[in-house]
Design a binder for these strands. Sequence first.
DNA 1: TTATTATTCAATAGATCTATTGAATAATAG
DNA 2: CTATTATTCAATAGATCTATTGAATAATAA
Lengths: 219, 219
Amino acid sequence: MSSINFKHDLFAQFARVAKALANANRLQLLEFLAQGERSVDALAKVSGLSVANTSQHLQQLRQSGLVASRRQGVTIFYRLCDDDVVALLGMLRRVAEQRLAEVDRLVTSYLTVKDSLEPIAARELLTRAREGLVTVLDVRPAEEYSAGHLPGAVNIPLDELERRFEDLDRGQEVVAYCRGPHCVLAFEAVAQLRERGLRARRLESGFPEWKQAGLPVEG
Amino acid sequence: MSSINFKHDLFAQFARVAKALANANRLQLLEFLAQGERSVDALAKVSGLSVANTSQHLQQLRQSGLVASRRQGVTIFYRLCDDDVVALLGMLRRVAEQRLAEVDRLVTSYLTVKDSLEPIAARELLTRAREGLVTVLDVRPAEEYSAGHLPGAVNIPLDELERRFEDLDRGQEVVAYCRGPHCVLAFEAVAQLRERGLRARRLESGFPEWKQAGLPVEG
DNA sequence: TTATTATTCAATAGATCTATTGAATAATAG
DNA sequence: CTATTATTCAATAGATCTATTGAATAATAA
């Protein structure tokens, strides 16, 4: 066996992992899985793909060693293999953001007023939350919240925010977070709360990044 | 603003970067570029690809924002965009190594050369060496060799092997040994010899174990 | 047992990727 | 100017990837 072939074979294996990441739908599935384990059905619903297609993408991810699965009765739950996968996704995102002007264009055109919403950094939030200075608001769906959330976070899914915003302490600043830095839920929440006159900002990152950074998690 | 489309578009951009990584040849090019900037021609030579093919891969990498280029006279030099790219490659490698049994298999089979190059046991080597069926090769430094070695062993320290491998009988199988079962010298020697087309295996153990087992020693 | 539910499998058309070929371009030397 | 060298472009066949379809499987309930 020549070392040339060995190297090529080895790179081919690395490429297999990259190939698994090289599809927008699979990246989206991975983002959802970064929140916690999910059934095929739930992933299909949330990603808008057919169940069969979702299943096939998940199997591809499993073959590349990025996700694992377990059966519970008739349902099969998928999860990320470990935190390195979150870190890898983070690096990919970072390089893409830095290097692709297109990403910038997308973010600004959709999320608008990026700067005026001044995101708060994770550690700063942790400090201020411990001092009781802010209300931490989780705007993800209830299932995602119960799978794990920031310490002391209140859960009001975005679609309930309108009728439940009175649950929030008007005198305190609210920091909203959702799935990740490009998840629009938190942006929306902040916009709504500000319309109601509350002081609101969003967390710079999302729950997966928080967890991956080794910061405390609840639930 | 359809947030679904926004998300999908954004993930599609991330996927573009992953796609650039999703090919063994491009990963190899990136590895070379991690050492410093290189001309297209140099990259083609070292990767074994045609110049046109190399050029096309490099352009793909450039479009994904992973590499940049500059012209100097008639030559165009490519380089990695920044250190984040190196970090991304590192994460990719790490996840692949951790998660893909195949990588493990490749690495071990390259180093131990699994089937055809299973290590040979001490007593078997003794028998076959006495029958003159194998060349016993000691790849330790000369001082260690002269302090004691296997009967009839030839001493070619590993760092001299490349220029002295013609000293070996190409028609005969070579069995290399070094300091012990965890010493890499013999692994390397076997790999080098096999690249040159010789039949080569390594001794299961090393000289100390051989001696300790009470087998005959010379010098 | 049969029915139901969640998931996977298998086949397939259309899209995308890859390596190859030979021609085109761009900088420089003579 | 022409010739040379390094690189890129364009076209293409064959391989691989994607989403869809409908059937198969596996666990559970009736």
